[in-house]
Design a protein around this nucleic acid. Structure first.
Lengths: 229, 229, 229, 229
DNA sequence: CATGAATGAGAATTCATTCAT
DNA sequence: GATGAATGAATTCTCATTCAT
């Protein structure tokens, strides 16, 4: 998705985990205040969208007041952009933990699918932010120098895995790594991003454990079968 | 996409096509007024989201005034729900034009992929509405008796195609039709729904003709290869 | 209260009784339509006040549409005035049924108290309309030629009863009939008009039968004792 | 009236007196702002009723803006309830200045009548608020824990006066204090609350000084004569 | 750094009233 | 006479943002 990308930026305080970890008063704790604002904003934007997010709620959730929000981050748009950049930075940092080159080609592909799947599950706010940003035609993302300069080393990684697979006779040739990358992300993304409407349509809870396991199995099988020579 | 579903409901006045077709005053034309309101609302919601949509803009775009909007449809939320239901109704109606059962299994699958792909391209507002609705956890969709009661004969159609393929020895067995259905939709959806952020990340226009053709080819090949026995 | 007054105006279709008597469609029934409008308006104004009354509700309750309301009566203010005049006309007409001159002085006074009490109970909308009108400083009433020309033959009636009582040695002299008239009305009015707040304050249902009986007894006794020589 | 009640609550900043006393800008004066809002709202509600009151006018009259009104008090309904409670609180506080137990029974009753009469004259907004609240069936008052918990030591005070009078042989026995309390309030209330319509009906200014004096005399005489043994 | 109070622009929604049929 | 549709002007309420302390 968008950026299963390795990148050098320092890891941000991770939007989700310690969200309400320090909702304490925090008098005279600029860093803590900013971190709590970012965490609260991430949740708020992901939940209500750009137009629906409320500065008041963010401030309250962050255990501070609106004025501090403007003091530390700037206005609503800047806050949103910071959240978006933070989300990208986080996934990029997480991606670095993958070492596909050490695995056999099929295992590497399976590993990639699993990682993508799990990341989306752990970070629904990331999908939500992508939704929001695309709803707005990525106009804010375009203004972000940080994110714009982001390429996906993942693509190269996939290209390498594919090449190794072809070489070893386990993958067919002619598969474009960018397309595959988008396909792998899409298989997880659509299911998880639209899980609420799909659950309504199909009348069953697609987030329940058995359904999730089944989906992961299907995806891995689909892709690996498709790569057979 | 949530519902590439066949259904018996009569075809709605199609939200998108004649959008600004009759933006004329239209005094004493309740049906026309309502249709124009729906068309304008569809565009507005898809473009700005639920929180960002403006009643004023919808009314103006529909060539009427706010008051009529409340007179004919109700409040903003009801209007949004009507738009969402209209979008579902439209895709369901369009789906009926597909006759997969008459095609050879591989051609049927290819046809389905092409249809999904093209529908999303022609109806970006549908994807946007799905995004919005999932952002809000499908809470409004759940209240819609219409959509809830919508089953998926489409899934059965895919199941039939798969069965025929297995019978004829051209498809492998054990492929779940619901999973395949979601996968096919996901392959198109992620690419097209996130085309703005992806274009920024990859630095090229993924909506340009060659890129689209390439993507369609990739998807068809991926799925058909994956279905090989 | 305001006008336990005899008057020559023809009795109006009585606001309360046949209120929802003919809520039928009533196509081509101008008189019926107007009557139903008046009844519905009386109830609406009495219930919600002038500012709170809704033309829509009145039309609906009357089983007609807003347009007819303007056709038959005029705008909201005129409608309200018509309702007010109707209420006065009704009480005036009812008052005529009293024949105090034929009763012994104490019985006449008791009869008057009972009548006032019962009329307020039967016509809470009359008290409500008086409240509303006084809230607006009787500005609309002042414009009503009808009501303005209304004097209270009741006062003369009371004066006669008092004179007879003094003559017969059962009443003390020096009681002003206007003051007595206002006092009698006030004893009932305050209790009944403010019955909701008083019930909350005193924590018991002052409209229940035993409470009503007790109140009537108190009032009659109070006045008659006060009139003793 | 509703609550000529003694109570221990601290005296509120008195809704009426310094109404437009400080209509100055008053930046950074939360208490003053709130007090001015309450004063303006009291006047507005009493004058136009609940439905007719205008938030805009209240804000302007209070020398602030609409936003502050919502910031300090909440919405229109909450504001109205606060006004109503304030009015009750004020009369309760004022009542405490009466020390009926120190007066001879007849003087105590006369004093009570005078107080009630004068309070209504000085606070027409209180009567108006009662009218309004009863028009709405005291539905809002019922939700007010404050007022609901208000008992009536005042009734006890009257009971004591009556008992002393009976003991001293100046009052007859068997007079219920609650009924007497309501009667005393009603004698003043009806005259003053309906003074506008009554003035129209009787064609003379009932608020003029001689008329007022005459009314007070009548009431005191009526009640005291009624209490004679 | 931190905070409650203040503000103007704008949002959704409602209302009385009138038009076209 | 009767009716659904249409309208503009309010009206309540909300929001992002800034000021004074």
């Amino acid at each position: 998705m968008d950026s299963l990308t390795d990148a050098p930026e320092p890891v941000q305080p991770a939007p989700t985990p310690n969200r309400a970890a320090t909702p304490a008063k925090a008098t005279r704790d600029p860093e803590g205040t900013r971190a709590r604002i970012m965490a609260a904003a991430t949740e708020e934007f992901a939940r209500y969208g750009l137009g629906g997010a409320r500065i008041d709620r963010i401030a309250e959730q962050a255990g501070t007041n609106k004025r501090m929000l403007y003091y530390h981050v700037g206005n609503k748009e800047e806050l949103y952009l910071a959240v978006l950049e933070g989300a990208y930075a986080h996934i990029r940092a997480t991606e670095r933990t993958l070492n596909l080159e050490k695995l056999a080609p099929p295992e590497a592909i399976a590993r990639l699918i699993e990682f993508t799947w799990q990341y989306f599950i752990d970070h629904p706010e990331f999908m939500a932010l992508l939704n929001i940003e695309n709803l707005h035609r990525a106009e804010l993302l375009k203004t972000s120098a940080h994110v714009q300069s982001m390429h996906s080393p993942f693509v190269q990684m996939i290209a390498d895995v594919l090449a190794r697979g072809v070489e070893q006779g386990v993958f067919r040739a002619g598969v474009d790594p960018v397309q595959l990358y988008i396909s792998i992300a899409g298989l997880s993304y659509f299911y998880l991003s639209n899980v609420h409407t799909l659950s309504v349509i199909f009348g069953r809870d697609l987030l329940a454990e058995p359904a999730r396991e089944e989906r992961l199995g299907h995806m891995v099988e689909l892709v690996l079968k498709a790569l057979r020579p």
